[in-house]
């Protein structure tokens, strides 16, 4: 089973977690961006065949939302960290 390193609890089985989708920051100034930008934000995905930063929730554990960098071809976890600790790309 794949193990996800929770920044709080350490590595746990993936079944304890919920995948929360690609890391996709909201447009910085919501009133300034055109509608097409919101459409992209809501629906379009990078769907990278490679490394991708993602949201995960430790649902059956400490209930923390955090970021995971994962290689999507192999499911290897590169690193995990709190959003506040990241460079908030």
């Amino acid at each position: 089973m794949i193990r996800i390193p929770c920044p709080n609890c350490g590595p746990r089985n993936v079944s304890e977690f919920r995948y929360g989708g690609e890391y996709n920051p909201r447009p910085a100034d919501p009133t300034a961006v055109p509608e097409s930008e919101w459409v992209r934000y809501h629906y379009f995905k990078n769907n990278t065949m490679g490394e991708q930063v993602e949201w995960w929730l430790h649902q059956s554990g400490c209930e923390l939302w955090f970021l995971v960098e994962r290689e999507r071809r192999t499911n290897d976890i590169i690193k995990s960290y709190l959003w506040a600790d990241g460079d908030s790309r």
């Binding site: 690609e22 990078n46 769907n47 990278t48 065949m49």
Partner: peptide
């Protein structure tokens, strides 16, 4: 399942996840 990777070759992203 690989259509996003082909679409990215023309700089297009698609509304889907594999």
């Amino acid at each position: 399942g690989w259509a996003s990777t082909i679409a990215s070759m023309v700089g297009l992203s698609l509304p889907m996840e594999t």
